[in-house]
């Protein structure tokens, strides 16, 4: 549903996003995880057509966002980090305006506005001025706005930032409920956030994708594995067995096979460098070793960064959680 290829965005000499590629399948929730300034927002802004990419391309529902921006935007709902609301407008009036510029058919507008207001639980404030609503309500109005034209793809930038714990849980439930019907990309700098909402995670740091996988895979890596990628040529099952026997290795998983070469992901105990032993094991068994590299080593640093950021940035939320 979303295809991003070789996306690069430069602001003058600064590279905000560098050669990012990924795909999101229909109905999937993909999480962007990364510290502030990692390039999450920039990537999202390119997908939504707010910024033009310096290089690379992005397609939404098969439509290139640069070549056919209007058509691509019809498939897109976008909630920026700060909900793009007009504080002087009333909720209902605002949603009606958004429905009009999003191209909802004239006869449908009233019905759609009522539906999304219902879905995002803002019906009870629909006649109130947005500027006078609490942050949580404003966020939900922002979400309603993104949904009003029933887009195939939803792009949500930090949808739970600045909310209190109760509101965070409500918003997560709401987003999970939207998956399936909508394809969703959401960004966050909070680790637990992704494991609760997303099916797949892309970890971004300094404009680059540094890890990708399901929340489980990422958490496993986080819990003290050194990951080494071994590419060798030979009989796959036997190689796997042999690697398994190397001291300090916990788990060997085949990752990909190209021609006769197979790549294995080897999880070793934390703090152990098993690379030399792995190399010896492969070579001494008479197979050809093509590549041996550590993977995800920087991941921990990033996670560390993320978690510390979280604590320092949201003392209120942490405090509230502690009280509970």
């Amino acid at each position: 549903m979303i295809e991003v290829e070789g996306l690069t965005k430069r602001y003058g000499a600064t590279v905000a996003v560098s050669d990012i590629s990924f795909q999101v399948q229909k109905g999937e929730i993909l999480g962007f995880l990364g510290p502030n300034g990692a390039g999450k927002t920039t990537t999202m802004r390119v997908i939504t057509g707010f910024l033009t990419p310096s290089e690379g391309s992005a397609r939404v529902a098969g439509v290139d966002v640069v070549e056919k921006p209007l058509e691509a935007k019809r498939h897109l709902g976008y909630l920026p980090e700060n909900p793009p609301v007009y504080p002087e407008m009333k909720v209902r009036e605002y949603l009606t305006f958004v429905a009009r510029i999003k191209g909802v058919a004239r006869g449908e507008i009233k019905k759609r506005v009522e539906e999304v207001a219902e879905k995002c639980a803002v019906t009870d404030v629909q006649n109130r001025q947005i500027g006078k609503l609490s942050k949580g309500y404003r966020q939900r109005v922002g979400l309603a706005q993104a949904l009003v034209h029933d887009p195939d793809v939803l792009v949500l930038d930090e949808p739970t930032a600045g909310l209190d714990p109760k509101q965070i849980i409500e918003t997560r439930d709401l987003i999970r409920g939207l998956a399936g019907r909508h394809t969703i990309i959401l960004s966050t700098h909070i680790l637990p956030e992704v494991s609760k909402t997303c099916q797949r995670v892309l970890v971004i740091n300094q404009g680059k994708v540094v890890a990708e996988g399901t929340p489980d895979e990422l958490t496993r890596r986080l819990q003290g594995y050194e990951t080494v990628l071994v590419t060798a040529e030979g009989p796959a099952p036997e190689i796997m067995d042999r690697l398994q026997q190397v001291g300090g290795v916990n788990l060997v998983e085949p990752r990909e096979a190209a021609d006769s070469r197979v790549t294995f992901e080897v999880h070793a105990e934390k703090g152990q460098d098993v690379r030399a032993d792995l190399a010896r094991a492969v070579v001494e068994s008479g197979w050809k070793l093509f590549e041996l590299k550590t993977s995800g080593l920087s991941l921990e640093d990033i996670f560390l960064k993320l978690t510390t950021k979280d604590l320092s940035e949201e003392p209120a939320a942490a405090h509230a959680a502690a009280v509970q």
Binding site: R45, G49, P80, P83, Y86, V98
Partner: peptide, 14 residues
Amino acid sequence: RAGTIELLATSPVT
């Protein structure tokens, strides 16, 4: 200032 420019710019209007 309000960030609503993001709404307009990402809507299917020229």
